[in-house]
Computed example of a mutant assay.
Amino acid sequence: MISLNKTIAYTKSWKHTFLISVVLGILVPLLLISLEPFDNSNTFSYKYIILSGYALCIIIPLLLAHIIENYVYKKQTNRWFVVNEFLYITITLFLIFVFAFFYHFLIVSNLHTFTLKAIWGFAKAFCLPFTPIVVPIWLYLRSKYGVIEVPLSNKKNTKKINSITITGNNKSETLSILESDFIFARAQQNYVDVYFKTEKGVAQKTFRNTLSNIMKQLPNAWQVHRSYLVNLDYLKTVEGNARKRFIRITASEEIIPISQLYYKALSNRLSNSSQELQN
């Protein structure tokens, strides 16, 4: 089962979001014209033009929802999780169905009173058949144009004295440190080892928790591997080749692997901040 707290790629670009909305907006009228789920062939003039109007019922909700999802994305410090994607798809689908419902009855059917029977009939004819067709294509396009961002290091933020508290599943498992003192975390089965800087050097504390839950408590933590979080302010070098890459950090001798999923985002971050990337 896929963890709802797993980090995934996010479609941040308005350009790509508009492209996705147009593709889906074209797809739905084509399905309506070819399948004729409402059995409305030859019942009104300009049928194809009017059915093409359903495209707006796709495009407008997607663009409106993108304003909200971008806000959530920024609030989560440029992170996007499986649970976010699930909620986004569910809520946006509901908006699409509402837009399509009113367009169908007010414009296509020219009705002004709605019954539960009519609503259920619309759901069976429009929502249920098209959802399994449209949603997989929608998810594929969002994945194709999505990225995992690694933000540039902000030196001003690292100087701030922000205290954070990390907790585990057990009540006794708590750790309060400065935000900038977190170095990296490593997951092992049901436990996570958190490494942090102290006056005496690097210290370590173990928590009974998942890596994704620990990540939510660490503002400066960025996932580079399924088992590792790092504070990129301590990043020293990226080494290895296309088959196997790893990173070194300044505060520890630990060799931290980096998966292909996160390598592109990390290399872009290093390029933008003019740091040396070793291949």
Rank of each mutant, 00 (worst) to 15 (best):
S3E: 10
T7D: 07
A9N: 08
K12C: 02
S13P: 01
S13V: 02
W14N: 09
K15T: 15
F18A: 11
V22C: 10
V23H: 02
V23S: 02
I26K: 00
L27N: 09
L27G: 09
P29K: 03
L30G: 09
L32A: 03
I33E: 10
S34D: 10
L35Y: 11
L35N: 10
F38E: 02
F38L: 13
S41N: 13
T43G: 08
F44M: 03
F44L: 05
Y46Q: 14
Y46M: 08
L56H: 05
C57N: 05
L64N: 10
I68Y: 15
I68C: 08
E69F: 14
E69K: 15
N70H: 10
V72L: 14
T77R: 15
V83T: 09
N84K: 02
F86G: 08
F86L: 15
L87C: 08
Y88D: 13
Y88M: 11
Y88V: 09
I89P: 06
L93A: 12
F94W: 09
F94I: 14
F97I: 14
F97L: 14
F97H: 09
V98G: 02
V98R: 04
F105M: 03
I107D: 03
V108R: 00
T113N: 11
F114L: 07
L116C: 08
K117Y: 11
A118N: 08
A118C: 07
A125F: 10
F126D: 02
F130V: 04
T131C: 11
V134Q: 08
V134C: 13
P136H: 03
W138Q: 08
L141G: 01
R142H: 15
R142Q: 12
K144Y: 15
P151G: 02
P151H: 02
S153D: 13
N162V: 13
N162W: 11
S163A: 12
T165N: 06
T165Y: 06
T167R: 10
N169G: 15
T174G: 09
L175S: 06
L175G: 04
L178V: 07
I183P: 01
F184Y: 15
F184T: 05
A185G: 04
A187R: 03
A187Y: 04
N190I: 09
V192K: 03
V194T: 00
E199N: 13
V202L: 12
V202D: 07
A203I: 11
K205H: 12
T206Q: 14
R208C: 02
R208E: 05
T210R: 03
T210W: 04
I214Q: 03
M215R: 09
K216N: 12
Q217E: 01
Q217R: 01
L218Y: 02
P219D: 01
N220T: 11
N220F: 15
N220A: 09
R226P: 04
S227I: 05
Y228V: 06
V230K: 04
N231S: 05
N231L: 00
L232S: 01
A251P: 07
A251Q: 15
E254V: 01
S259L: 00
S259K: 04
Y262I: 04
Y263K: 06
N268M: 03
R269T: 05
Q275G: 07
